[in-house]
Design a protein around this nucleic acid. Structure first.
Lengths: 193, 193
DNA sequence: GTATGTATATTCACTAGTCGGTATACATGG
DNA sequence: CCATGTATACCGACTAGTGAATATACATAC
């Protein structure tokens, strides 16, 4: 049985992350991941019992970095809750302009696995999205906003909508528009529409 | 050269629609489409020059039916613009409860093709989403709402967010929440938050 | 009216390559 | 010796796409 903290395992997940995010899980072969990690497929299968498990490990590995990124943008922004929320979208729009940006890996993976609802990778995505929504509701509550859970969910909907439609239109204006809509909803809940 | 209105072509697109929507474009082989259509792969390749072109034809074929469905829900709803918009989401939530529902075919296809931005199927998706946004802005304008384009885009973002996150959580509450948020935004623009 | 020509439409058999996954063997360190 | 880890080589199934032949229909020519 391989170790969960093995450096070899980390190399595999790192390689998988770059390839799966860049090309999509269905367009990347296990051979390609093994080659990128600098080892053979058989070794990869020593550390992961299937490609599906590797995909789930890829998403699990993105959970904390992703949350930290969002929290950093939120914390660093000046102003009230509305400005802090809008700052997340502004930073997202900037990131989306980078040529290597390919949307949200969690959402894209769930879209590819739409016919397999119970897939471990979909569950990993659900955990991440729930954590983000819960974290955001907590921040909004701290900022003294009423009904923080409802508002957090609405912001999540706008954000994921922006992620998805960006893959169709490739126009960051949609992310900015989502940010402004989120700001409006925050202000409504702050009592000053 | 095959005819654009050929009944055989229609049979192929119908078969492709069921399979591509149900399983995802990457998980369906050209052989599977041909078998479902009751003809050989070679015949399919007589009518379509590549799988990519077939995928684009599948999405092009969904454009008008999809728009008509949305327009029907909007027109049939009683009340002001906010109620009519919310009605779209309510109907969407009901549809999403059906076991065969797999989200928005346009968004899922774009997610699968995220590494190929210029793909003809992505362009077909962009055309559809733009048509929907334009139609909605027109309806909102008719209902006497200021800044209908901005509002239409925000509603599109909420709807596509609901489509996407539903594939992760499989919980129609998100669609209802999006509908309520859309209603709030409409009311803000109607001047009575 | 029957032979010939041509465009449309379809089939069978095939290629060349990729897929996820595995059997077997060999190393290395405790 | 035995557990952990790595490598070569392979498997059967499947992939998108193609070559060559053929069926069908409808012309026009004689």
């Amino acid at each position: 049985m391989p170790e969960a903290t093995s450096p070899t395992r980390k190399r595999i997940v790192d390689a998988a992350t770059k390839l799966f995010y860049g090309e999509g899980i269905g367009r990347v072969s296990v051979d390609a991941v093994a080659e990128k990690a600098g080892l053979t497929k058989r070794t990869l299968y020593y550390h992961f019992k299937s490609k599906d498990e590797l995909i789930a490990a890829y998403l699990d590995g993105r959970d904390q970095p992703n949350l930290k990124q969002m929290a950093g943008w939120f914390d660093d922004a000046e102003g009230g809750a509305d400005k802090k929320v809008e700052a997340i979208f502004t930073n997202l729009a900037r990131a989306a302009r980078h040529p290597k940006w390919k949307g949200c890996g969690f959402l894209r993976t769930a879209a590819e696995l739409a016919s397999m609802p119970g897939h471990p990778a979909v569950k990993a995505g659900a955990r991440h999205k729930t954590r983000f929504e819960t974290w955001l509701a907590g921040e909004l509550s701290t900022q003294g906003i009423g009904e923080p859970q409802i508002l957090a969910r609405e912001i999540v909907l706008l954000m994921d909508g922006a992620f998805s439609i960006m893959l169709i239109h490739r126009n960051p204006d949609y992310v900015e528009a989502a940010g402004r809509a989120a700001g409006v909803l925050v202000k409504v809940r702050m009592g000053a529409a």
